[in-house]
Design a binder for these strands. Structure first.
Length: 542
DNA sequence: GTAGGGTTAG
């Protein structure tokens, strides 16, 4: 029970009185929010009214609508409206043009953004920090942080002024490519803000560097920068991620005692944490608390809960939540279907999963790489290789790129269904398509070689791995040790086991199972018992 | 009116 007392008190009030979750007919859920489409259409027609007025309205009236469209991420619309403005002879101001640049950046058209920047200069407008930050972000979003830094140096040399947002954007770019040290340096030179700290703390936690994240959090407090909702939510998320659940809840409590109210992100992370701990009852109650406290659950809340139910094999509950989503005024998305399909497959209901896959088409939800990967994996694992191949070809026809996970599933399926040569052929194709193999691929292939009795080939791949300076992981070792045992090469297997432990790769229960049963089969009872006791003393039999 | 941070799936 790690929901601490204070969390219970302030976050989960009167759980007992919360009505059953399904179905909830709460006016809160049914509040008539306009659909995205109708709001978009309304904005466009208002814009057109402005455009056709006898006297040109003040320019910021246009800007208001454009800004709204950008917030709705309707970039192509905003671009076309600005074009119409200019065609009508209404001159855009710096804000409009900065917004236009922003749209191009979001559509991954950096060159066009720069041409707008050229227009800004030509018209004699003085680019402000917003204009420049937009370009910096354009580079950063593409991962071209170096270019962003060069641009920064140039504009500073030219005397343009940047602000906290510009540096926040650079810090974000650096953090996202793993350059957290550089990000911290920039933070210390260019002033500190809550957001800057939040960005770096998040990156550190994503990389599981929880100590560094904690230190940075302490530093921010010492410097008098107040942690906010995002700081606490990030810390809560990150410490759950590294399994330090107590610390995580400590942050959640601290947030609540600072009178910062959780929002939908915080709640969703809480639901996920409870689900991962298999506490589905509590997770469901959190959803009820959200409703009670007027934080509207979104599609992530439902997706998370559905995934949680599948994790504990509660197919019925998962289905109930799935069918309740629409009643709550929320639309299922591609992830909802992916989670459902995955859950059904893991619960041995492949046919139902395929039905849902077909339902996606009716609902106009486009299956993505993950959808196909899940299905291909499920079909392979149930021996339906040819159906998996069909899907593999279908996804290409629908412009969904197979990625490393897709390939790995199919290669694994081929290996396990005695089509090793086809698997190797697919590996070649994968490389041709520019997809690099990973540790899973290597393990799948080594395993495939071993079960086909091609131990020599397996050893070659293993040696190749070592030669290239990669380190095998626990699974690689287990597969190799198992392969050696199968061929009766017990001494070699034990030698590899020692090597593995020397390399700091600790055995798990599977490793011991492989070795112990091989020793027993070979009549080496005494040695087998020694390993058995070693396993017990390492507390691996939990 | 324009800009930076946090959540779910294989």
């Amino acid at each position: 029970m790690w929901l601490s007392r204070s969390v219970r008190v302030s976050l989960l009030p009167s759980i007992a009185k919360v009505p059953p979750f399904l179905p909830i007919h709460n006016s809160f859920f049914c509040s008539h929010s306009h659909s995205q489409t109708s709001l978009h259409d309304e904005a466009v027609s208002q814009f057109n009214r402005l455009l056709h007025q006898r006297h040109v309205p003040p320019i910021f009236e246009f800007g208001k609508i454009l800004g709204f469209l950008v917030r709705m991420k309707r970039y192509p619309t905003a671009i076309s409206l600005i074009k119409q403005m200019e065609l009508k002879g209404i001159l855009c101001d710096l804000a409009n043009l900065s917004l236009l640049m922003n749209c191009f950046c979001h559509l991954d058209k950096l060159a066009l953004a720069f041409s707008v920047f050229g227009k800004i200069l030509k018209r004699g407008y003085h680019p402000n920090a917003i204009t420049l930050t937009t370009l910096i972000r354009g580079f950063c979003d593409k991962g071209e942080v170096k270019e962003a830094l060069i641009l920064h140096d140039k504009v500073v040399a030219l005397g343009f002024l940047l602000d906290q947002f510009s540096y926040g954007t650079l810090i974000n770019g650096l953090s996202k490519i793993g350059e957290t040290e550089a990000a911290i340096k920039l933070l210390r030179i260019q002033g500190r803000s809550t957001v800057m700290y939040n960005i770096i703390i998040y990156s550190l936690l994503k990389e599981k560097q929880s100590k560094e994240a904690y230190d940075l959090y302490s530093e921010m407090v010492i410097n008098g920068i107040s942690p906010d909702l995002v700081t606490y939510t990030t810390l809560f998320y990150g410490f759950c991620l590294v399994g330090q659940v107590k610390v995580a809840f400590g942050f959640l409590n601290e947030m609540l005692s600072n009178s910062i109210r959780p929002d939908v992100y915080t709640y969703n992370i809480l639901i996920d944490a409870l689900c991962k701990e298999r506490k589905l009852g509590e997770a469901k109650n959190v959803l009820c608390v959200m409703v009670k406290t007027y934080v509207k659950p979104d599609i992530v809340s439902f997706n998370t809960l559905i995934d949680g139910y599948y994790l504990v094999n509660k197919v019925m509950n998962a289905r109930q939540v799935f069918s309740a989503i629409t009643h709550m005024g929320v639309s299922p998305d591609v992830r909802t279907y992916n989670i459902m399909i995955n859950g059904l497959i893991k619960n041995e209901r492949v046919d139902e999963a395929i039905n849902l896959f077909q339902e996606m088409h009716n609902r106009n939800i486009v299956p993505d790489t993950v959808t196909y990967s899940i299905l291909i994996d499920g079909l392979c694992k149930t021996g339906r290789i040819s159906r998996a191949w069909d899907l593999f070809h279908e996804m290409r026809g629908r412009n969904q790129q197979a990625d490393i996970v897709t390939y790995n599933s199919l290669i694994d399926g081929l290996c396990k269904n005695h089509c090793l040569d086809k698997a190797i052929e697919l590996l070649r194709k994968m490389r041709e398509n520019g997809v690099q193999h990973d540790m899973y691929t290597v393990n799948i292939l080594i395993h495939g070689m071993c079960i086909e009795g091609r131990l020599k080939n397996a050893q070659e791949i293993f040696q190749d791995l070592l030669n290239k300076g990669h380190s095998p992981n626990l699974y690689t070792y287990n597969i190799m040790i198992n392969g050696l045992c199968r061929e009766g090469l017990l001494d070699e297997a034990l030698a590899l086991w020692s090597k593995m432990e020397d390399n700091g790769c600790l055995s798990n229960v599977i490793t011991f199972e492989i070795i112990i049963s091989a020793l027993f089969e070979n009549g080496q009872t005494e040695k087998a018992e020694k390993f058995f006791h070693e396993m017990i003393s390492r507390d691996l039999l939990k």
